[in-house]
Simulated scan of single mutants.
Amino acid sequence: MLKVVVAGTTALFVIASPIANAQNLQTSSSASPERLNAADRNNLTDMRIDLVKAALQLTPEQEKLWPSVESAIRARAEDRKARVAKIQETVGRRADESRVEALRNRDPIAFLQRRSEALAQRSADLDKLAEAWQPLYKTLNPEQRQRMAAIAIFVLRDMSDVVERRRATQSDDDDD
């Protein structure tokens, strides 16, 4: 079991490191940042799914429950892509405005409505993901649950690191 956890963690670091570095370069670049293209995003989603599935070492009986989990993961990734595209569209429309114009033209009510819609979509996606995972999770043995918990902790920690980097970058941009 230890070998699987070590191999899974190593694979995750190998996969995540270049992506995190690319993301860091994106956020620190003042020129138009390079974004992952659709194929890269799909490959990243595939790798994440494969990593979780490999770490869990599903039994043939558990394999039958996996397709709904994978579908929920993919749907969540697609919805995230759509939310990011909508944000980029909004930012793109305002890119030519000066800071004064942007402040003058800002509509806080529209912002709150967009934010509410995005959070509602994220909430719905998480509900669907939890519903998809529930039947499979009930069948996991203690070792599989430990591996799933370890992956979840790593992912949550990585997500919080990304959020902190974004906040730091935004505060650096605000200081300029």
Rank of each mutant, 00 (worst) to 15 (best):
A20I: 05
A55S: 14
L51W: 05
T27H: 12
E143G: 06
A75T: 07
D46I: 01
R145C: 03
I153S: 08
P108H: 11
K138N: 11
D125R: 02
I87P: 01
R147K: 05
M47P: 00
K128C: 01
P142G: 12
D158N: 12
A54R: 11
Q113N: 12
F111D: 14
P108K: 06
E63P: 06
A118R: 03
E97K: 12
A82S: 10
G92E: 05
R145Q: 14
L58I: 04
N37H: 09
F13G: 15
A7C: 02
A72G: 01
D175K: 12
A118F: 01
S160Y: 06
M47Q: 11
R165H: 06
L126C: 00
A54I: 03
T10W: 13
N141H: 08
R41V: 07
N43H: 05
I73Y: 02
R145N: 10
I73C: 01
L44G: 07
D173I: 12
M47T: 09
I49F: 04
M1N: 08
V52N: 09
Q26N: 13
I19N: 00
A77W: 01
L65Y: 04
Q121N: 13
Q113D: 15
A102L: 08
W66T: 02
P18K: 06
T9A: 15
A130S: 11
L2I: 13
A20G: 09
V155E: 14
S29R: 15
K53T: 04
K53R: 12
T59Y: 07
Q88S: 10
